[in-house]
Amino acid sequence: MIVRIMGEGQWKLDDSHFAELNKLDDELLEEMEGGDEEGFRRVLGALLDAVRRLGSPLPDDALEPSELILPSPDASLEEVREMLSEDGLIPG
Rank of each mutant, 00 (worst) to 15 (best):
E8C: 09
L48K: 01
E37R: 11
E82T: 10
H17R: 14
L29V: 14
M83S: 00
R4T: 14
E37C: 05
M1V: 08
E86H: 14
P65Y: 05
P65G: 13
V80D: 06
I5V: 15
L48D: 00
L21T: 01
Q10E: 08
K12Q: 14
L68C: 09
V80W: 06
E20V: 14
L47D: 02
P91V: 03
V3C: 06
R4M: 06
W11G: 03
P65N: 07
P59Y: 09
L13N: 01
R4G: 04
I69Q: 13
V51H: 02
K23S: 12
L63H: 15
L58S: 06
G92F: 00
S76V: 06
E20F: 10
E37D: 12
I69R: 14
L63P: 11
K23Q: 15
G45M: 01
D14T: 03
M1G: 10
L89C: 03
R41W: 05
I5W: 03
L77I: 13
R53C: 09
K12G: 12
E37S: 12
R42L: 13
G39N: 01
E30K: 15
P57L: 10
S66N: 00
V43W: 05
M1E: 02
E86T: 13
L44D: 01
M6V: 14
E30F: 12
K23A: 14
G39E: 03
L28P: 05
E64M: 15
I90T: 05
I2N: 09
V80Y: 05
D87N: 12
G39L: 05
L28V: 11
E64H: 10
S16W: 08
M32K: 08
E67V: 08
D87E: 15
K23V: 11
R52C: 04
L77E: 02
L24G: 08
L24K: 11
D36P: 00
E27V: 06
S56A: 13
D61Y: 11
R42F: 03
I2A: 00
S66H: 09
D49L: 13
P65M: 08
R42V: 09
I2K: 02
S16I: 11
L21M: 02
D26V: 11
D15F: 09
K12W: 12
N22S: 15
P73G: 12
G88T: 00
